[in-house]
Structures are given as structure tokens and as C-alpha cells.
Amino acid sequence: MRSRTLSALLLPLAMLLAACGGATSAAPTDHTDGKGETTLTIGDQKGGYEAILRASGRLDDLDYRIRWSTFTSGPPLLEAVSAGAVDIGGVGNTPPVFAAGSDSRITVVGASHGSSAGEAIVVPKDSPLRGPAQLKGRTIAVAQGSSAHYQLITALKKAGLRITDVKLAYLQPADALAAFNRGRVDAWAIWDPYTSQVLRSTRARVLTTGEGVVNGLSFQVASPAALKDDRKSKAIGDLLHRLQQAQDWVFEHPEAWAKVWAKETGLSYEVALDAVRRSYGTRVPVAVDPAAIASEQAIADTFAHLKLIPRHFAFEDYVDTRFNRDLPPSSAAPRSYGKASS
């Protein structure tokens, strides 16, 4: 019963697959904010930019219009950016790599750096496994092409193992949870808020996290056509500044944001607060600098080597640094609330 219940709880989180590959579609758009002649179409996800900007009061006094277009995950959002149907949207560290590897017309214009504690490999509490090196020969559930997939690869490498030393079960979260609870896999590579939800709702513990092995970055990605439009480019710069202020608000008001986020996504308040403190509230807006580009290049090269993307490419060709302003470097330390529940 516990497995079935949590599987049902995971279903509302389909819209939070920003870090994950896979095709999903956009929901209809039927509302706007602001006023003025310029309209910026923003690709969003449930509990994403619109929710955080509205909760923090950063949608007030707009001198341009925002049209919201809601997507269930990062990959189709970037498809819309490439097609020019969306001017800008936010995604995790993996979707830009897959989009660029497929020759999509996208440009990374902003970034934030957060804790990688929510990128985790979890095992049952009674598992004999105590470290990544003991995963050799074991079966691990992971969403193919996701940030968790890359985290798994790097965690194994750090432990002296190759991806071929383990057995991979490519499963999306709801199916992975069922396999995990039924003992069909030995471990599960996952990301927040799934990490927080699993630790709250099942007999699981963390084997290792992404801290020290993955970059903890997320990105704002714009349409090249929008960047060539002076009025839209100005609006994008303003939006990035408002998002920076909104992220500051989240850090300062984790409980208030957790209540909003829980209502938006169907998460329980306790899980939402865990995820805010473990991952989402820790983010610091940072520059898209050479270190960030090099880190994304490593992800791109890894997935190209595994033939999960069709070609090798230079990630720097998909970056515009005009909005870096005086932002801290991408290596800036994430904010911290102390330890989240586990």
C-alpha cells in the first residue's frame, strides 16, 4: 500500500522533470501579466517562475507584458524556445546539453548555483551497501539522460568504477519508485523534490549525493531571435534581475515559499520545505562564466561519448554573457539552511 500511495503522489510531480530528458507537451496559455507594447513569452513549469515571482511580489510594476506558457519538463520547453514560440525559460543543467546537441536554436543567458545535496543515490535503509564503490554489479534505477544519470556516472567514476560496471534500469520516477520498493533494483539515482519525497515517505537512506561531483547549476535559456530584438532583450535583462530578487526572497522565506510550492505542485508541505532547504532555496544567481561553460562541456562530452546525444559540440557556442553584470562566479558557494530532514 505504501508503494502504491507514493507512486500516486509522484504523478503530480511530472511537471518537475526539468532535469530530465523525455518528450512531454505544453499546456495551454491563457493569461498575461504587466503592461506595455513589448510582450515576453516565458516558458514555465508548475511551481516555477510565475509562482516564485508572484509570491515574492516581483511581478509588480512591469513595463512590458509577460505571457506565460506552461510545460511539463525542460526538453519540450527548449523545443519551443528553439522554434521561437517562447522567448525565455528556465531548466536544469542537462536539457541545454541535449538541445544544443540536437542543433536547437537556443542561447544560455543566465544561471544559478545551488546545493547538489538533492542529487542523490538512495538505497533501502536495510541495504548492505555503504558507499558507491559497492555498487559494482548492482542494478540501479535512473532516468536516462537526466541530471541524475550524469551524477551517477560521475559518482561511479570517483569510486573507481565505470558505468559498465553496474546494471542500469532506465525508469522514470513513478516506475523507479515501484521497482525500488519491490526490491527489483538495489539503488535509485534521483533528484529533488523526489529525493525529499522518498526520504520522507519510504524506508530509504542516502548512499551518496552530488556534492563535489556535479555542478549544481540551472539555467535561463533564451531564443536567439528574442535576443536580437532590442525591446525583448531589455525585458529579458529586467526579468533576470527580478528572478535574482525572487530567489533572495525564497532563501529568506523558506516556509512561505514551501506553502506556495506545495499548493502549486501537490507536494506535501513537509516535503516541499525539505526540498527548499536541501536544494531550491540554496540557489545563488551566478555568472555564465568559463567555469560554468567548462562544466557543461564535460556533461556534453560524457553524453556524446555514451551516444545519448548525436554529436560532440562546443557548449560556448550556445552562450551569451551580456547579462552577467556583476554577478558572482559560477563557483560561488550555495546558500545553506543547515541539514534538511532525511
Rank of each mutant, 00 (worst) to 15 (best):
Q220P: 00
D175R: 13
V206Q: 13
A256I: 03
N215T: 12
A222I: 10
R277I: 01
L177E: 14
R278K: 13
D238V: 03
R182F: 10
A176E: 01
G266R: 10
L239F: 12
A176R: 00
A204P: 02
P193E: 02
V271I: 12
L207N: 05
V198K: 05
A235E: 13
A256E: 14
A176Y: 02
T282D: 14
W191T: 15
R242F: 01
Y280V: 06
T282V: 10
W191H: 12
V206F: 08
A225G: 05
R182E: 15
A258W: 00
K263P: 03
G266W: 06
A204C: 09
L240D: 05
V206Y: 05
D238F: 00
A235H: 06
D186I: 04
T202H: 07
D230Y: 01
G212M: 11
W261V: 00
R182Q: 12
K228S: 07
F219Q: 07
E211Y: 09
E255Y: 05
S201H: 13
A246M: 03
T209H: 10
W191F: 12
S268G: 08
P254V: 06
F251K: 11
T209Q: 10
E252H: 11
A275P: 07
Y194I: 13
E211S: 10
R242N: 10
P254Q: 08
V250P: 02
A258R: 04
F180T: 00
D175T: 01
D192H: 10
A225H: 07
A176P: 01
A174S: 15
T282H: 09
L199N: 11
R277D: 09
E255H: 02
L199G: 13
W249Q: 04
W191S: 15
H253K: 02
R203E: 15
L267M: 13
P193M: 04
Y194A: 12
V260D: 15
W188M: 08
V221M: 05
W188A: 02
I236D: 09
R205I: 04
V250D: 00
S223Q: 07
A189D: 11
D230V: 14
A256P: 04
I236R: 08
A262H: 08
A226W: 01
V250S: 08
H241N: 14
